[in-house]
């Protein structure tokens, strides 16, 4: 109940507003007039069958694609607003404070785990080193900033339980640890919105449980809002506050996990129900829901 009320108050404050987003690749309309909102402090999940356009939405939000149409507004805690579709890719992380991870892990595999996290703090350190000039001359301000950067990295390494492997090359880590490292690295950019592209892909149940805990603690401790794409329903249903379902580039459902779980259109999309049977499915669901209500 308490959770519900917080959700209600959060709803007033969207952090990311996607409006009428469309993305066309040649003749293919990968995303068609897609709108949704992610709320501050919430975990929003974007789900859908393979090829539904989830990663395309992510790439539009994080600037790797320029959308054909639509508006993506990022509203920061300070009240500052950024139109993400107009920013070049790196400025989305630098100024708008949106960080992302990738479906196929992208590590700096030849650099150590610690170095990976220091690279993520590039812009902050660049300023502190006076764009390298002051740092080259050995100014103490840079040394101080470098120490702080290391402390922040250490903090996230502890959170992601990677602290024992801090000095090992990132490429040497097992798969699950690399996933966690990618999240820790994204968090080192100090984002307000963290976009995770299938963070639980390829993880075993224990690892994906640990991931759930990591994401929950990120949300609680830093107040970072999370937007994630996920196929693993145990992750989606357990941690997300809000689920958006995408099929063939269009939104088919939007609401809290329970609502989405029972939405006949979602079931149809996932299980492939024929059009004539949709009516039946809806009736069935209504019956089940009515029965539940009765026992309660």
């Amino acid at each position: 109940m308490a959770l519900e009320t917080t959700t209600m108050t959060m709803t007033q404050d969207p952090i990311l507003k996607v409006e009428h987003l469309s993305m066309r690749f040649g003749g293919l309309m990968a995303i068609n007039d897609f709108s949704f909102e992610a709320h501050r402090g919430e975990i929003t999940a974007l789900i859908g069958p393979n090829g539904a356009g989830k990663t395309t939405v992510f790439n539009c939000i994080t600037g790797f694609y320029k959308p054909t149409m639509g508006m993506i507004t990022m509203k920061q805690r300070s009240g500052k607003e950024y139109l993400l579709e107009r920013l070049p890719d790196f400025e989305i992380t630098k100024h708008a404070k949106v960080a992302r991870t990738f479906q196929n892990i992208r590590m700096f595999s030849g650099m150590t785990v610690l170095e990976n996290l220091l690279v993520a703090q590039h812009n902050k350190l660049m300023l502190a080193s006076g764009f390298t000039v002051l740092g080259l001359l050995g100014f103490p301000a840079y040394r101080q900033a470098a120490r702080e950067a290391k402390e922040l990295a250490q903090h996230w390494l502890e959170k992601a339980s990677l602290i024992d492997r801090a000095d090992d090359p990132a490429g040497d880590l097992p798969y699950g640890a690399q996933r966690r490292l990618e999240i820790a690295r994204a968090m080192c950019t100090e984002p307000e919105l963290l976009c995770l592209d299938e963070p639980a892909a390829g993880l075993n149940p224990r690892e994906s449980h640990a991931l759930n805990e990591l994401l929950q603690s990120i949300r609680h401790d830093t107040g970072t809002s999370i937007l994630l794409i996920e196929h693993d329903m145990s992750v989606v249903m357990e941690i997300s506050d809000h689920v958006v379902v995408l099929e063939y580039g269009q939104k088919i459902s939007d609401g809290n996990p329970d609502f989405v779980k029972n939405d006949p259109r979602v079931i149809a999309a996932y299980l492939g129900v024929e059009d004539e049977e949709v009516e039946q499915v809806i009736e069935q669901i209504e019956e089940i829901e009515g029965g539940k209500g009765g026992t309660n």
Binding site: F64, F90, K94, F102, F108, H122, N123, T189
Partner: peptide, 8 residues
């Protein structure tokens, strides 16, 4: 690509 995603 990872560099770009980190704001570099």
């Amino acid at each position: 690509i990872a560099c770009k995603s980190l704001g570099i």
